[in-house]
Amino acid sequence: MAVLEVNELKKSFVSPDGERTVIVDVPRFAVDDAQQIALQGSSGSGKTTFLNLIAGILKPDSGDISLAGQSLSKLSEAGRDRVRAQSIGYVFQTFNLLQGYTALENVLLGMMFGRGADVTYAKALLERVGLKDRMNYRPRQLSVGQQQRVAVARALANHPKLVLADEPTGNLDFHHATEALKLIREVCREQNAALLLVTHDREILTQFDHVKSLAEINNAAQPQIAQITQI
Protein backbone atom coordinates (compact mmCIF):
# COMPACT_ATOMS: atom_id res chain seq x y z
CA MET A 1 0.00 0.00 0.00
CA ALA A 2 1.30 3.45 -0.90
CA VAL A 3 2.11 5.73 1.98
CA LEU A 4 2.59 8.60 -0.49
CA GLU A 5 0.75 9.24 -3.71
CA VAL A 6 1.31 12.26 -5.89
CA ASN A 7 -1.03 13.04 -8.76
CA GLU A 8 -0.84 15.83 -11.34
CA LEU A 9 1.25 17.98 -9.00
CA LYS A 10 2.26 21.39 -10.29
CA LYS A 11 4.14 24.24 -8.71
CA SER A 12 5.43 27.41 -10.31
CA PHE A 13 7.24 30.49 -9.12
CA VAL A 14 7.54 34.02 -10.40
CA SER A 15 11.09 35.19 -10.96
CA PRO A 16 12.17 38.74 -10.03
CA ASP A 17 11.76 39.82 -13.66
CA GLY A 18 8.11 38.70 -13.54
CA GLU A 19 8.43 35.51 -15.54
CA ARG A 20 6.45 32.54 -14.27
CA THR A 21 8.47 29.35 -14.20
CA VAL A 22 7.06 25.89 -13.59
CA ILE A 23 9.38 24.06 -11.22
CA VAL A 24 7.42 20.93 -10.46
CA ASP A 25 5.14 19.07 -12.83
CA VAL A 26 4.80 15.50 -11.62
CA PRO A 27 1.91 13.52 -13.17
CA ARG A 28 2.30 10.56 -10.85
CA PHE A 29 4.64 9.42 -8.12
CA ALA A 30 4.21 6.96 -5.25
CA VAL A 31 6.14 5.53 -2.32
CA ASP A 32 4.97 2.28 -0.73
CA ASP A 33 4.89 1.56 2.98
CA ALA A 34 8.41 1.15 4.37
CA GLN A 35 9.85 1.50 0.89
CA GLN A 36 13.17 3.30 0.49
CA ILE A 37 13.55 5.34 -2.68
CA ALA A 38 16.42 7.53 -3.80
CA LEU A 39 15.53 10.37 -6.11
CA GLN A 40 18.28 11.73 -8.24
CA GLY A 41 18.31 15.38 -9.20
CA SER A 42 20.85 18.00 -10.04
CA SER A 43 21.04 21.43 -8.45
CA GLY A 44 18.07 23.60 -9.33
CA SER A 45 16.06 20.64 -10.58
CA GLY A 46 13.28 21.32 -8.08
CA LYS A 47 13.94 18.43 -5.72
CA THR A 48 13.77 20.54 -2.54
CA THR A 49 10.57 22.17 -3.82
CA PHE A 50 9.17 18.70 -4.51
CA LEU A 51 9.96 17.58 -0.94
CA ASN A 52 8.54 20.80 0.52
CA LEU A 53 5.31 20.18 -1.39
CA ILE A 54 5.12 16.62 -0.02
CA ALA A 55 5.81 17.94 3.48
CA GLY A 56 3.01 20.48 3.15
CA ILE A 57 5.42 23.38 3.63
CA LEU A 58 4.50 24.65 0.17
CA LYS A 59 1.07 24.57 -1.35
CA PRO A 60 0.86 23.26 -4.91
CA ASP A 61 -0.75 25.26 -7.70
CA SER A 62 -2.72 22.17 -8.61
CA GLY A 63 -2.76 18.41 -8.15
CA ASP A 64 -2.97 16.28 -5.07
CA ILE A 65 -0.69 14.75 -2.52
CA SER A 66 -2.06 11.92 -0.46
CA LEU A 67 -0.20 10.92 2.65
CA ALA A 68 -1.32 7.69 4.31
CA GLY A 69 -4.67 8.12 2.60
CA GLN A 70 -5.11 11.74 3.64
CA SER A 71 -5.26 14.38 0.94
CA LEU A 72 -3.06 17.34 1.80
CA SER A 73 -4.61 19.61 -0.84
CA LYS A 74 -7.90 19.57 1.07
CA LEU A 75 -6.28 20.68 4.31
CA SER A 76 -5.75 24.18 5.58
CA GLU A 77 -2.22 25.34 6.36
CA ALA A 78 -2.75 24.45 10.04
CA GLY A 79 -4.00 21.01 8.96
CA ARG A 80 -0.90 20.47 6.83
CA ASP A 81 1.24 21.56 9.78
CA ARG A 82 -0.44 18.92 11.93
CA VAL A 83 0.05 16.16 9.33
CA ARG A 84 3.69 17.19 8.91
CA ALA A 85 4.27 17.07 12.65
CA GLN A 86 2.62 13.69 13.09
CA SER A 87 3.42 11.75 9.93
CA ILE A 88 6.54 13.18 8.33
CA GLY A 89 10.14 13.24 9.46
CA TYR A 90 12.43 15.66 7.66
CA VAL A 91 16.22 15.41 7.48
CA PHE A 92 17.86 18.48 5.99
CA GLN A 93 21.21 18.87 4.28
CA THR A 94 22.09 21.62 6.75
CA PHE A 95 20.61 19.62 9.67
CA ASN A 96 18.62 22.66 10.87
CA LEU A 97 19.17 22.04 14.56
CA LEU A 98 18.25 24.81 16.96
CA GLN A 99 21.56 26.08 18.26
CA GLY A 100 20.30 27.21 21.64
CA TYR A 101 19.08 23.76 22.62
CA THR A 102 20.82 20.52 23.53
CA ALA A 103 20.63 17.41 21.39
CA LEU A 104 17.95 15.99 23.69
CA GLU A 105 15.96 19.23 23.62
CA ASN A 106 16.12 19.35 19.82
CA VAL A 107 14.58 15.88 19.67
CA LEU A 108 11.97 16.76 22.31
CA LEU A 109 11.09 19.94 20.42
CA GLY A 110 10.36 17.82 17.36
CA MET A 111 8.01 15.73 19.49
CA MET A 112 6.16 18.69 20.98
CA PHE A 113 4.37 19.58 17.77
CA GLY A 114 3.48 15.93 17.07
CA ARG A 115 2.62 13.32 19.61
CA GLY A 116 3.97 15.15 22.62
CA ALA A 117 7.30 15.10 24.43
CA ASP A 118 8.48 11.66 25.52
CA VAL A 119 11.83 11.97 27.26
CA THR A 120 12.39 8.22 27.51
CA TYR A 121 11.83 7.67 23.79
CA ALA A 122 13.92 10.73 22.88
CA LYS A 123 16.80 9.37 24.93
CA ALA A 124 16.37 5.93 23.38
CA LEU A 125 16.55 7.45 19.90
CA LEU A 126 19.70 9.41 20.69
CA GLU A 127 21.21 6.27 22.20
CA ARG A 128 20.28 4.39 19.04
CA VAL A 129 22.12 6.90 16.83
CA GLY A 130 25.19 6.66 19.07
CA LEU A 131 24.86 9.85 21.06
CA LYS A 132 24.25 8.40 24.52
CA ASP A 133 27.07 10.52 25.95
CA ARG A 134 26.23 13.65 23.97
CA MET A 135 22.58 14.19 24.85
CA ASN A 136 23.21 17.40 26.76
CA TYR A 137 25.59 18.88 24.20
CA ARG A 138 24.54 21.80 22.09
CA PRO A 139 24.96 21.53 18.29
CA ARG A 140 28.08 23.69 18.30
CA GLN A 141 29.69 21.24 20.71
CA LEU A 142 29.06 18.33 18.35
CA SER A 143 30.91 17.25 15.21
CA VAL A 144 29.17 17.59 11.84
CA GLY A 145 28.48 13.85 11.79
CA GLN A 146 27.04 13.94 15.29
CA GLN A 147 24.79 16.86 14.37
CA GLN A 148 23.40 14.85 11.47
CA ARG A 149 22.66 11.98 13.85
CA VAL A 150 20.69 14.32 16.09
CA ALA A 151 18.75 15.44 13.01
CA VAL A 152 18.01 11.79 12.17
CA ALA A 153 16.82 11.11 15.72
CA ARG A 154 14.61 14.21 15.59
CA ALA A 155 13.13 13.16 12.23
CA LEU A 156 12.04 9.86 13.74
CA ALA A 157 10.80 11.31 17.03
CA ASN A 158 7.11 11.25 16.10
CA HIS A 159 7.02 7.72 14.62
CA PRO A 160 6.60 9.14 11.10
CA LYS A 161 5.16 7.12 8.25
CA LEU A 162 7.47 8.86 5.80
CA VAL A 163 10.95 10.30 6.23
CA LEU A 164 12.06 12.92 3.73
CA ALA A 165 15.80 13.40 3.40
CA ASP A 166 17.08 16.33 1.38
CA GLU A 167 20.73 15.78 0.48
CA PRO A 168 21.32 14.42 4.00
CA THR A 169 24.95 13.61 3.28
CA GLY A 170 25.73 16.76 1.34
CA ASN A 171 27.74 18.30 4.16
CA LEU A 172 29.61 15.13 5.13
CA ASP A 173 32.81 13.53 3.86
CA PHE A 174 32.59 10.13 2.17
CA HIS A 175 33.19 8.15 5.34
CA HIS A 176 30.66 10.01 7.39
CA ALA A 177 28.21 10.15 4.50
CA THR A 178 28.27 6.37 4.21
CA GLU A 179 27.76 5.99 7.95
CA ALA A 180 24.95 8.55 8.03
CA LEU A 181 23.14 6.93 5.12
CA LYS A 182 23.47 3.51 6.71
CA LEU A 183 22.08 4.87 9.94
CA ILE A 184 19.13 6.63 8.28
CA ARG A 185 18.19 3.52 6.32
CA GLU A 186 18.56 1.22 9.33
CA VAL A 187 16.54 3.39 11.65
CA CYS A 188 13.78 3.91 9.09
CA ARG A 189 13.63 0.17 8.61
CA GLU A 190 13.43 -0.40 12.37
CA GLN A 191 10.66 2.20 12.67
CA ASN A 192 8.85 0.82 9.64
CA ALA A 193 8.99 4.28 8.05
CA ALA A 194 9.25 4.82 4.31
CA LEU A 195 12.23 6.86 3.12
CA LEU A 196 12.35 9.28 0.23
CA LEU A 197 15.87 10.58 -0.18
CA VAL A 198 16.91 13.09 -2.81
CA THR A 199 20.53 13.49 -3.79
CA HIS A 200 22.79 14.23 -6.68
CA ASP A 201 25.55 12.04 -5.21
CA ARG A 202 25.99 8.94 -7.41
CA GLU A 203 27.82 7.04 -4.65
CA ILE A 204 24.75 7.34 -2.50
CA LEU A 205 22.41 6.33 -5.29
CA THR A 206 24.26 3.06 -5.83
CA GLN A 207 23.28 1.91 -2.37
CA PHE A 208 19.54 2.01 -3.09
CA ASP A 209 17.47 -0.68 -4.77
CA HIS A 210 14.90 1.84 -5.92
CA VAL A 211 16.37 4.84 -7.66
CA LYS A 212 14.44 7.31 -9.76
CA SER A 213 15.55 10.37 -11.61
CA LEU A 214 13.63 13.55 -10.96
CA ALA A 215 13.91 14.26 -14.65
CA GLU A 216 11.90 11.09 -15.29
CA ILE A 217 9.00 12.01 -13.03
CA ASN A 218 9.09 15.80 -13.37
CA ASN A 219 7.92 17.15 -16.71
CA ALA A 220 9.00 20.67 -15.83
CA ALA A 221 12.05 22.08 -17.47
CA GLN A 222 15.25 22.01 -15.42
CA PRO A 223 16.18 25.68 -15.17
CA GLN A 224 19.25 27.00 -13.40
CA ILE A 225 17.41 29.16 -10.96
CA ALA A 226 19.43 31.86 -9.29
CA GLN A 227 16.58 33.25 -7.30
CA ILE A 228 12.88 32.59 -7.28
CA THR A 229 9.99 34.20 -5.58
CA GLN A 230 7.14 32.18 -4.21
CA ILE A 231 3.71 33.18 -5.43
Binding site: A55, E77, D81, R82, A85, N96, L97, L98, L109, G110
Partner: peptide
Protein backbone atom coordinates in the same frame (compact mmCIF):
# COMPACT_ATOMS: atom_id res chain seq x y z
CA UNK B 1 15.68 30.41 10.28
CA UNK B 2 14.84 29.32 13.80
CA UNK B 3 11.16 30.05 13.13
CA UNK B 4 11.35 28.28 9.78
CA UNK B 5 12.81 25.19 11.49
CA UNK B 6 10.04 25.22 14.08
CA UNK B 7 7.46 25.53 11.32
CA UNK B 8 9.13 22.70 9.38
CA UNK B 9 8.85 20.54 12.50
CA UNK B 10 5.11 21.17 12.50
CA UNK B 11 4.69 24.34 14.57
CA UNK B 12 1.74 26.40 13.41
CA UNK B 13 2.06 30.05 12.54
CA UNK B 14 -0.05 30.94 15.57
Amino acid sequence: REFAILRALGARRV
